[in-house]
Design a protein around this nucleic acid. Structure first.
Length: 362
DNA sequence: TCTGGGGTCCTAGGACCC
DNA sequence: TCTGGGGTCCTAGGACCC
């Protein structure tokens, strides 16, 4: 029913840079042009342990995609250009892009290095003007940064995000309010935001293959099966999502580092050395951001990928390296002994953060 | 095929307080 | 002597996002 809602129709843009990291690499290295480019872990001639972060469309032709083990990528295309990635550069480029995007609307929200939402409801009169604005954004990004993006335009963030993914690269997809359900219905349910592999498989097993299937499914059964999330999935499937485009990024809730060993190990001295390095990195960031923390959590992953986290909340807020190291060591000692299964990864994270502004931290 | 590293949010049980 | 219900914090695990 149109006209039944008195609220002004929102117009939200989602801007998604096309294969951002590898696009920056291509731009910086003209000699990569036309070749498959893979950004990610060191493939070590097929023996590397990490994953692919991004790759360009030439690499995708070989079946390579982000998240894939780097060893598999190597098998599919050993001739590709493999780079570790220059994250400082990506961050700089990202900052310039976000500055450009921020000019187009006061209601702006960065999402990762290469995505952003813009609420342009107050900046344009209708969808046609929104399309013109999107075209101007694309043009400015290409002109200034020589990078392309894909843009989705829709009545809310959820649908805009799915729309930007609909046509890539260099795409522009518009979904008007009355076409939201028609647009979503035929898409596989896994394309819905917040429905990943696990939930997607459970839904498939219930006979739900498309977002349309989910939208018409008995909501009570979904609630029984997934709790409050079931209700949300049902709303999302009908394109209902009220979240505002945030002005600021919000405050940080936690901060951590983790590291995978190049070979699995049970050498305690080696493990504690790595933990200390992680603690030092975290401590530097804590001090730089003028934070105090109260909770320390360690993560250990065994050879067989079995993963545990153990945390301890300290009696007082602190930013001291020795407090972090002591808590970390205690937690790991309590849950890991030499001669046990070998470890693949260790991680440290601090949470329960407090910003202390100008105050001096020791 | 063999699975990174940065995060956020949700659940669920238990402790503890009023 | 036996009993309640709400609220908050802590801990561990899991799913999901980029």
């Amino acid at each position: 029913m149109k006209g039944s809602c008195s609220e002004k129709q929102r117009i939200v843009l989602h801007v998604d840079m096309d294969h951002f990291f590898s696009a920056v690499e291509e731009r910086e290295h003209p000699e990569f042009k036309g070749k498959p480019v893979v950004v990610g872990a060191d493939p070590q001639k097929g023996g590397g342990r990490g994953v692919v972060k991004t790759c360009n469309y030439e690499a995708r032709e070989f079946g390579i995609h982000s998240g894939m083990p780097i060893s598999s990528a190597w098998r599919l295309c050993p001739k590709a250009v493999y780079v570790r990635g220059n994250y400082r550069l990506y961050k700089e480029v990202s900052n310039r892009i976000m500055t450009i995007l921020g000019k187009y609307s006061g209601k702006f929200q960065r999402w990762g290095l290469d995505e952003a939402f813009l609420d342009v409801s107050s900046d344009v009169q209708n969808l046609e003007e929104a399309v013109e604005l999107a075209a101007r954004i694309k043009h400015e990004l290409l002109w200034n940064e020589r990078l392309t993006c894909s843009i989705g335009i829709a009545p809310n963030k959820l649908v805009a995000k799915i729309a930007s993914d609909y046509k890539k690269p260099d795409g522009l997809t518009v979904v008007s309010e009355d076409s939201v359900e028609r647009f979503l219905a035929p898409l596989p349910v896994q394309r819905m935001l917040w429905i990943g592999e696990k939930t997607g498989r459970k839904l498939n097993a219930m006979g739900i293959k498309t977002i349309g299937d989910l939208a018409s499914f008995d909501v009570q059964v979904l609630i029984q099966r997934f709790g409050v999330m079931g209700l949300r999935y049902h709303k999302y499937a009908r394109g209902i999502h009220k979240a505002e485009v945030g002005r600021t990024g919000g405050t940080r809730k936690s901060l951590g580092h983790e590291s995978t060993f190049s070979t699995d190990t049970d050498d305690c001295e080696f493990i504690f050395q790595r933990l200390n390095d992680l603690c030092q990195g975290i401590h530097e960031r804590v001090v730089r951001h003028k934070l105090l923390f109260k909770t320390v959590t360690v993560k250990i992953r065994f050879q067989n990928f079995e993963t545990h986290t153990y945390g301890k909340t300290l009696p007082l807020l602190t930013s001291r390296l020795q407090d972090l190291q002591k808590a970390t060591q205690k937690l790991v000692q309590d849950h890991f002994a030499e001669g046990n299964k070998k470890l693949r990864l260790v991680g440290v994270r601090v949470s329960n953060l407090k910003f202390v502004g100008e105050q001096e931290t020791l």
